[in-house]
Design a protein around this nucleic acid. Structure first.
Length: 137
DNA sequence: ATTCTTACA
DNA sequence: TGTAAGAA
């Protein structure tokens, strides 16, 4: 199945939409097409579909297939693989949110320091002010 | 060539 | 779990 067109497709970003038909995707992943169909039916993968209903695997899908291979080789069954990938995605999202919050905290802290500088009175002026108050007594 | 279903090691 | 054969 030679779906290779010009070099333009190769230069495209790593996250292009569906590109490979199942036979090519299986070849690149070192798996059998049936195995890819099984993974999809078990919720490990969801490649795009053409209008006719054929699967089209993206580079993102291939990365996921490699991750699946790692986990299955480690001894996990399909359900285990599915849950690990799910948790990894959740972890990545939480880490991203954490970074956002940390950035906001940094900005808030800077603003607070600016407030301090505005309210503080230079020491020389402060002494004068205190003496004047003492004289009144 | 691909799809899904069914069956087997 | 992964593979193969069947039919569409």
């Amino acid at each position: 199945m030679a779906s290779d067109i010009g070099g333009d497709s190769r230069h495209r970003a790593i996250q292009g939409r569906g590109v490979y038909v199942i036979s090519v995707a299986a070849e690149l992943a070192g798996m059998h097409p049936q195995t890819l169909r099984v993974y999809e039916r078990r919720g490990l993968l969801e490649p795009n579909r053409t209008g006719g209903g054929s699967r089209r695997y993206s580079e993102h899908d291939l990365e996921r297939l490699r991750r699946i291979a790692e986990l299955t080789d480690a001894g996990l069954n399909i359900e285990g693989v599915r849950r690990v990938i799910e948790l990894e995605a959740e972890l990545a999202e939480l880490r991203a949110q954490l970074e956002e919050e940390r950035e906001l905290a940094r900005l808030r802290e800077k603003e607070i320091h600016r407030q301090y500088r505005r309210d503080l009175v230079p020491l020389s002026q402060a002494v004068v002010h205190v003496k004047s108050v003492q004289i009144r007594r």
